[in-house]
Amino acid sequence: MSGDHHGHHPEPESPAALRARAIESLLVEKGLISTDAIDLIVRAYEQDIGPMNGARVVAKAWTDSAYKDRLLTDGTDAIAELGYGGNQGAEIVVLENTATVHNVVVCTLCSCYPWPVLGLPPSWYKSAPYRSRVVREPRSVLREFGLELGPEVEVRVWDSTAEVRYMVLPERPAGAESLSEPELAALVTRDAMIGVVKVQAPALAR
């Protein structure tokens, strides 16, 4: 897209923009950086999904019942205990999945997401079909993710907002009794914390 604005900038550049441009140009001239390398770096950081801190939160809740109580009572505080936060004012509410209740999270308006614990949202989470269908026909959507729920299980769909972000506390899988907290954390997937799949027992987990 170069060539169409040379010599006739619609608006004068800010002093900071000019200085950034001067620095880049000098560094390129000196052979220290290339514009392509900068492009790649910016893109990589823009797409970095970040740490799945949520997996550690889940593993701790599975092994420490007092922590689990605090987590379900005040998610934001309990998550901050582990050093995670920075959601710029949004509260994080944690929903427990059980044998009879299955929670699943969506943001019908846009793509609000508990990113301090889950990193960046996957693209399907932001897609229009997921956002509209999971509300109308959650069981069909979950089936497409490979999750078949019996009629005895109540499905609850939670719509995130700018103020409240939801994270699912998945059921601890059977067969994981002997695992340590870090080993349990390794079983927990992002999709399980959105509520579209369950956490698989170690023998089944890949």
């Binding site: 800010s14 950034a20 441009r21 770096i41 910016v42």
Partner: peptide
Amino acid sequence: WEGRAFGI
């Protein structure tokens, strides 16, 4: 330019 400054 903020993205460029970050990348640099």
